[in-house]
Every structure is written in C-alpha cells, then in structure tokens.
C-alpha cells in the first residue's frame, strides 16, 4: 500500500466543509449571521445616519420615518448606532478567536511535541489560568492593562485559551501514533510538513467547533464589560455601552434599552444555534461536556 492511499484517510479537508445540520432553526441562524456580517462590513453604506452625529433638537424621539428606531438622549440615530455596534461585537470576538487559536496552537503544540518537563510545566501553567473564573480574570487583566477594547480582547482571549491549549495538546499526543502520521514519517516527511498536512487541519476543525460554541458567550462578555464602562469608550457605538447609556431613561424610553439588548440576544442565539449544530455533526464526544 502506498503512502498516498493511506493519506486519503487523513482528515484533511474537514475544516473547509463544516457540515451543518439543515433545519429551519439553523437556516434562520445563518441568515442572521450573514445579516450581521453585512451590517458590520458595510456599516457606512447600510446605516442611514452617522452613528455619532449629535442633534440635541431631536433627542429621545420615538420611532418615525426619519428615525426608524428613534433617537437616543443625544439625538443620535438608534438604528445607525445598532448597525455600527455589530462592528465592535463581531470584530472583537473575531479578534479574540484568532488570538486564542494562535496562543493555543503555540502553547498546546509546544506542550504536545516537546513532552516531558516542558509539557508538565505548560500544563500546570494552564491549570493556573483555569483556576480563575472568566470574568474575574478579565477584570484583573483590564485592571492591570487599563480599560479599552484592545485590552478587553486580550483579557477575554487569555481567560479562554487554556481550554483550547489543552485540547491541542491532546490532539497532538493522540495523532503521533496514528497510521497516516507514522506512514508520512516513514516516507521521510519533515515534522513541519506533517504538522501542516495532517495535524493542523484536524486541530482547526476541533477548534472551530469549540470556538463556534464560545462565540455567543464571548459576545456576552464583551458587552458586559463594555456595559461596566471597561470596554469601548463613548461615543463609540457598542451594544453594551448603549444599554448603559439608556439605563437612566428606562422608565420614560424603555425601547432604548430594548433594542441593543434584542440585537445582542438575537446574535447570541444565532451563534449558539450554529455552534450546537456544528458540534452535533462534527464531534459527538463533546456533547454536554463543554466547560462554559
């Protein structure tokens, strides 16, 4: 049997063909995610107004033809702020995930490949991170690094990466003895080539499953920290900030607090549906065993 035919069993293309269960809930979720992505990417084209344009003559207006969702306490268009808010939410979560994946591959990969003392040390290091409740670690890091969106992203990434690093390490260890990896090695493939040809796709597939499950949760963290005033700084439009802005008008203008919360709820729901669906298809072993 040639090496090539053995290689056909390697899970090479799984990353790019995420099998998603096709139900009506999943379809709606996909539509929501696509709409969010469009809103985030094309915000200046889609939004009817500048999200930061203050007009005190138009403050706290109800829904009208000019302002579909009304205006906030500074007369800014609510709908435009919601649309621009997708940029911060989706952008920060995307950055978090890229950061987490990079850290996890470097840390978990080093641990799995080098083994021995390094492995022991790295795993104890991860255990220390896992001893923190997520929000507490995030608050600590923001306290040290200072407030702001970049630091929120760093904080959320650092409070999640240990789970991913442990998973990468486990995969590296389990792949070492798999037939197609041994065959590649026998055929003289270098370690780096084996990593990128065999391990990397499998690691990415697993990490995408975990990440899709975590996206909703991370969006809630970003919004929660911004709500506390630790994330993006005003006047930037962000859903958590908008909820905080609207709190003093909760009695007179309850819709102002409803819109950003609904936007957040719908997005998190959509990502949770996709996450569950991807997990059910790709990895039945993760079922009900997710750390968050």
């Amino acid at each position: 049997m040639s090496v090539a035919s053995l290689d056909e069993h390697a899970p090479r293309r799984t990353v790019w063909r995420l099998p998603i269960r096709d139900t009506w809930a999943v379809r709606i979720a996909l539509v929501i995610v696509v709409l969010l992505a469009i809103a985030a990417i094309a915000a200046p084209l889609v939004a009817p107004y500048d999200p930061n344009a203050v007009d005190l003559t138009q403050r706290l207006q109800g829904p009208s033809l000019a302002h579909w969702l009304g205006t906030d306490h500074l007369g800014r268009d609510e709908l435009s702020r919601l649309i621009y808010g997708t940029r911060v939410s989706l952008g920060s979560v995307a950055l978090c995930i890229v950061l987490i994946m990079t850290l996890a591959i470097v840390v978990g990969g080093a641990s799995g490949y080098l083994g021995g003392r390094v492995d022991q040390a790295v795993m104890r290091f991860c255990d220390i991170f896992l001893a923190f409740p997520t929000i507490v670690l995030a608050l600590f890091l923001i306290g040290i690094l200072g407030t702001g969106m970049v630091n929120v992203v760093i904080a959320i990434a650092l409070s999640h990466f240990a789970w991913y690093a442990r998973m990468v390490r486990g995969l590296v260890l389990s792949f070492r003895q798999r037939d197609f990896v041994l065959a590649s090695r026998a055929a003289g493939a270098s370690r780096i080539r084996i990593f990128f040809e065999h391990l990397f796709p499998a690691i990415m597939a697993q990490m995408i499953v975990l990440a899709t499950l975590d996206i909703g949760h991370m969006m809630l963290h970003v919004a929660g920290l911004s709500f506390l005033g630790l994330g993006v700084q005003p006047p930037t439009a962000e859903w958590g900030v908008m909820i905080n802005d609207a709190r003093q008008f909760v009695w007179s203008k309850p819709m102002l607090i409803l819109w950003p919360g609904l936007a957040l709820l719908l997005s998190v729901m959509a990502f949770n549906i996709l996450g569950d669906s991807v997990r059910d298809r790709l990895d039945p072993s993760l079922h009900g065993d997710h750390p968050h």
Binding site: G216, G240, I243, G261, L264, L265
Partner: peptide, 18 residues
C-alpha cells in the same frame, strides 16, 4: 433553556426592573 444561554444577564436585569 435556549433563551437562558443567550440572554445577557445585565439586560435581563433591566427587563425585570421594567
């Protein structure tokens, strides 16, 4: 349960107050 895992808790707090 599905609603629960997707609801921002601070926003839910305001809804309950409302």
């Amino acid at each position: 349960a599905f609603l629960g895992v997707s609801t921002p808790n601070f926003w839910l707090g305001f809804l309950l107050v409302l």
